[in-house]
Design a binder for these strands. Structure first.
Lengths: 151, 151
DNA sequence: AAAATAATGTTATATTATAACATATATGTT
DNA sequence: AACATATATGTTATAATATAACATTATTTT
């Protein structure tokens, strides 16, 4: 499990942030989107889209794949969640107002994911991609291994 | 297109490397696996599994998804190709004998992919993941953008 | 040659994701 | 309020990606 003392706090924090972000952007965190966000924040682990669909169907049994994927798309578009490409899974963003060059530490033991944003990956690329100039646009950095609490 | 003068050279080089790697490891680059590797090396761009399947079916029309995926698995296991997680696609490895902490520059214009291996990402993670010790096991770093030749 | 192992063939199905069109809800304009 | 417009959701169908399970063939070992 994660190091958070009381996970309810994480979820509440995430919801508060989400509302703030949406207000600032003038977009709507509808009931459905909020529900999906809450379901994603059930833990610090990742969720798969079709697991999310099952969860959602317990609340509203008319939910179907597009219901989930549309909400996921919205939440990703506004930086409230991230897709973990190497897992085809989704995780809540812990700091949705200012994220640049983020990366993910994925624990193979507890399945928790930690998001980090402290490095400027673009610089690394610039310094390492050699003579040719590559203009980075989107960075996917996912590191799986064993987290400090599972060693 | 890529900066390679004559792409046949790249493909031949890749095949030579693959044979060497397989010999060294005592595994077999069967005809099927070699064919798949060649098809992947058709360009410096990435290939999708089902496109590969179509290509393969032109050669042997009994080919089916497991035909392709098994070869992909073999080639990945032995470092002869890589999966690009953010694209669900596959690309030939340009230096299969010694690769550690590799990353990919994906051009959104020409679809070419450049593999780089000069940085030690593990160090970056160590330096940036804070107090807690995370033991990295597998790194996925994919950077999409516009390559030097497409700007 | 027989047994064991590895590779491939084959059928079926699981998993992940989107297209296309219908309906409902909210927002802006007269 | 009535209407128009835009946004969100409902619904059906299907596309795209990947694997399980078992049968057969080829290769290697004994």
């Amino acid at each position: 499990m994660s190091s958070c003392k009381n996970h309810k706090t994480c979820t509440n924090e995430a919801l508060k942030n989400a509302k703030m972000v949406c207000k600032k952007k003038g977009v709507k965190l509808t009931k459905l989107r909020e529900t999906v966000l809450k379901l994603i924040w059930k833990s610090h682990s990742y969720v798969k889209a079709y697991d999310l669909l099952e969860d959602l169907q317990r609340i509203d049994n008319s939910a179907k794949p597009p219901t989930v994927y549309r909400s996921l798309d919205f939440l990703m578009e506004h930086g409230l969640i991230h897709k973990i490409q190497s897992l085809n899974a989704y995780v809540g963003c812990s700091h949705p107002d200012a994220h640049d060059s983020c990366y993910f530490l994925i624990c193979n033991e507890c399945q928790n994911i930690e998001e980090h944003c402290s490095i400027n990956i673009n610089d690394i690329v610039k310094n390492n991609s050699g003579r040719k100039s590559f203009l980075p646009n989107q960075v996917t950095l996912e590191i799986s291994g064993v987290c400090g609490e599972c060693t």
